[in-house]
Simulated assay, not measured.
Amino acid sequence: MTSFVLVAGAWLGAWAWADVVDELRAAGHDAHPLTLSGLGEKRGAPAGQQTHVGDIVQEIERRDLREVVLVGHSYAGIPVGQAAVGIGDRLTRVVFVDSNIPAGGESFVSGWPDGRAMVEASIAEHGGFWPPLSAADYEGQGLSDEQIGRIVGGATPHPGATLTEPAVLARPLGELPATYVKCLLDGPEPGADVAALLTGERWRLVEMDTGHWPMFSRPRELARILLDAAGAGG
């Protein structure tokens, strides 16, 4: 039995995975959606990027999970990638869902040459937190009005230090067994950093014809992809 640990991106918490979790559990697997510090029901707590890495590693160790498929969406790919390195032989596979990936010494915003100043200014203006998107920002991503309403209604401000602190990697990501899920409405191809890793033997690409939040727009399809990834093994 696989243990899925699922971490959503900026502004979101464990609640975002509800529909996917139902599918995974119905298939007979453990599913553990995780809310990172400062988000969701943990709203307002100060957190840096390494806090989020620790949240993930500690959850896996506290539950003594084995055969872990660790899933990171969007921003969460950065702490998830670092945590995947840190949990050793507990890991079966890491799945990056239309996500950023960590690079040693680089932060979430360091790869945003045009948007970094805007994000950092927004964080400074909102007490150290990055404010959630508006409903209009989700248009064109394959979401219904009801799904957009769920996201906007549940989103909470994101702790800014997690976006500006650098990642720390103890070993190269290319050594990990990994699947990268590219959501095509958010861009036709992965970034150059992901494309380079996909040339290696341990990384695989899966495409979804939907937008950046497939846990809402295509939960059953995403669950099938995660189940397939679990079967891919190391």
Rank of each mutant, 00 (worst) to 15 (best):
V5S: 10
L6C: 03
V7E: 01
A10T: 11
W11H: 11
A27C: 02
H29S: 08
D30T: 13
H32D: 07
H32G: 06
L34Y: 04
E41H: 14
P46V: 07
G48P: 03
Q49R: 09
T51D: 13
G54L: 07
I56Q: 08
I60Y: 01
E61C: 00
R63L: 13
R63I: 02
R66F: 05
R66H: 14
V68K: 00
V68D: 04
L70Q: 04
L70H: 03
V71L: 02
G77K: 09
I78E: 02
I78F: 09
P79K: 02
G81N: 06
G86F: 01
F96C: 05
D98H: 09
S99Y: 00
I101E: 01
I101K: 12
P102K: 14
S107P: 00
F108G: 07
G111R: 15
I123A: 03
A124W: 14
E125Q: 14
W130V: 00
A135S: 15
A136T: 10
A136H: 00
D137T: 08
Y138C: 02
G142Q: 13
S144Q: 14
Q147S: 15
R150K: 14
I151S: 12
A167D: 00
A167P: 10
V168D: 05
L169T: 12
L169C: 06
A170G: 15
L173K: 12
L173N: 08
L173I: 13
E175I: 10
Y180L: 04
K182E: 11
K182I: 06
L185H: 13
P188Q: 15
A195N: 08
L198C: 13
T199D: 10
R202G: 12
V206A: 07
D209F: 02
W213A: 15
W213G: 12
M215P: 12
P219I: 12
R220I: 06
R220C: 03
I225V: 15
I225D: 02
D228Y: 08
A229E: 09
G231Q: 12
